[in-house]
Design a protein around this nucleic acid. Structure first.
Length: 469
RNA sequence: GGCGGCGUAGCCAAGUGGUAAGGCACGGGACUGCAAAUCCCUGAUCCCCGGUUCGAAUCCGGGCGCCGCCUCCA
């Protein structure tokens, strides 16, 4: 079995992964635009990148992961027009741009932590790297890749012959599709802004900087090019993002980076996660019809139940999210945690030969383009295997959890959650007394009464316990 | 108009040439005073039609259906 194999969007094929620098994988993950709370679709992207990071670590690689925080320049409509989303959110809420950015950055970090995403080595904000972005535009300009129009400094995609290659774009086909509201003066429809000038009719922007071309702000695509190469080098191993970024954002990043640094390929591997399928209800932060992690938690699901849900489908496949599917995932997660809780303190001898087949199957799944569903299925085979001693079962589950990230070491199953409340405890005791007296009408009445207020009684060999449903 | 993906049991889904992983639900059983919780058992020939092949869910062609990208979006 060779090592890790990853599907590379750049070559449209699975390829064996080998880092440019031996023993060290350099990974850039397109991060959030912090103008709203991340929804569960955004979360899927984070979870996917985390899975990748864990798989790289399991290969024994040191991983440097950089994630950007977009806090300027992400416009609402066209890539070249429209309002800045962050400024819009600030105006709406009466908060400052920095407050908005800080608020949602914190929310994003909290969601990552709650779903066991490993912290990145570097988190970088676009507004902290304005100089680097300006420098890049300067170089591109010096090399003749840019031109100036009223609206800003633009990248001339015609100067980069390979522009259409990455996304396999049919530029002519696109041109025939009428494009409305284009920026006057652009030479090609695919040209994009490197540096934007404030809209003369749009009032003063909250975020502007001086540049060799005057006041303005960086084009959205620029930050990823500038920051990734600042922290990872002019060529690095892997760049991740959602499939929606392939055609525009990543094509543009590649164009400006390869022209700026004179490299090819700028990034060796490009990995993209598919979207959650909301049954036609497209979820996007700009539309407001979003489900966020806190919604799931309010519905009674542990945050990691969503991670479990995510693991059930391959990252390159659209995954249908529904209440029913989420409920099923939560039940499955709870039961797996239940098994872990039973075996994790087990002592006893471990026969390595018994572990090998499961271990191999698991590794094979991980190495085959991060096949989490198969990896998870292997964990279940272990959990339900009658042949493994508890200590052996735990040895495997613990090992697998380094990839799955389900906190099997600490998570507690719901069934062991036992609450305490003087009033309810008293009712439960009354029920016990009735049962002892074989007055089942009374004991069932008490149980029903508690059930009506959402309290579930579970009878165990050690006596009853209760919890809120 | 251009580009891409998908269609596998009630649901979420693995599987890309040799007779269909896993989870959830349903049903059956154990346990229970009865339940709940828990544990065990049980189900599909893979959207339709045609073709290639000794052999196809898996390859090719044609349908039908769904989702997405090309413009902010994970």
């Amino acid at each position: 079995m060779e090592g890790l194999v990853l599907y590379n969007t750049r070559t449209r094929s699975k390829q064996a992964f080998a880092p440019i620098e031996a023993g060290h994988a350099r990974l850039y993950t397109c991060g959030p635009t912090v103008y709203a709370a991340p929804h569960i679709g955004n979360l899927r992207s984070n979870l996917f990148a985390d899975l990748l990071k864990r798989a790289l670590q399991l290969e024994g690689l040191r991983v440097t992961q950089v994630i950007n925080v977009t806090d300027v320049g992400h416009l609402t409509d066209d890539a070249d027009a429209g309002e800045d989303k962050i400024e819009q959110a600030a105006a709406r809420s009466g908060k400052s741009v920095a407050e908005i950015a800080d608020l949602y950055t914190a929310q994003w970090l909290a969601d990552r932590e709650r779903t066991q995403c490993l912290p990145p080595e570097v988190i970088c904000k676009a507004t902290d790297h304005i100089d680097e972005q300006i420098e890049m535009v300067r170089i591109l300009e010096a090399k003749g890749y840019s031109y100036r129009i009223d609206d800003g400094i633009y990248f001339d995609t015609a100067r980069f012959p390979g522009y259409a290659d990455f996304a396999r774009l049919n530029l002519e086909g696109q041109e025939s599709g009428a494009r409305i509201g284009d920026v006057p003066g652009k030479r090609n429809p695919s040209d994009f802004a490197l540096w934007k000038f404030p809209d003369p009719d749009g009032g003063k922007r909250l975020q502007e900087w001086d540049s060799p071309w005057g006041r303005g702000f960086p084009g959205w695509h620029l930050e990823c090019s500038a920051m990734s190469s600042k922290y990872l080098g002019e060529q690095f191993d892997i760049h991740t993002g959602g499939v929606d970024h392939i055609a525009v954002h990543h094509s543009n990043e590649i164009a400006q980076s390869e022209c700026c640094y004179d490299v090819h390929p700028w990034v060796a591997f490009w990995l993209h996660n598919e979207f959650l399928d909301l049954r036609g209800e497209k979820m996007s932060k700009s539309k407001g019809n979003v489900t966020v992690l806190d919604d799931l938690i309010a519905a009674g699901y542990p945050a990691l139940a969503f991670r479990y849900f995510f693991l059930q489908a391959h990252y390159r496949q659209q995954q249908v999210f529904s209440d029913e599917a989420m409920e099923a995932a939560a039940t499955g997660y709870d039961r797996l945690v239940g098994v872990a809780a039973e075996v994790r303190d087990a002592d006893g001898d471990i026969d390595p030969a018994k572990l090998t087949p499961f271990r191999e199957r698991f590794q094979q799944a991980v190495r085959d383009d991060l096949n989490a569903p198969r990896a998870l299925a292997t964990a279940w085979e272990v959990a339900r295997s009658g042949d493994l001693a508890p200590a052996e079962c735990w040895a495997l589950l613990r090992e697998f959890d380094a990839f799955l990230g389900l906190d099997l070491e600490h998570a507690e199953p719901r069934r062991s959650a036992s609450e305490s409340d003087p009033r309810i405890d008293a009712l439960v005791e009354q029920r016990q007394a009735a049962r002892a007296a074989k007055d089942f009408a009374e004991s069932d009445r008490i149980r029903d009464e508690l059930a009506a207020e959402g309290v579930v009684i579970e009878d165990t060999p050690d006596g009853p316990r209760w919890r809120r449903a």
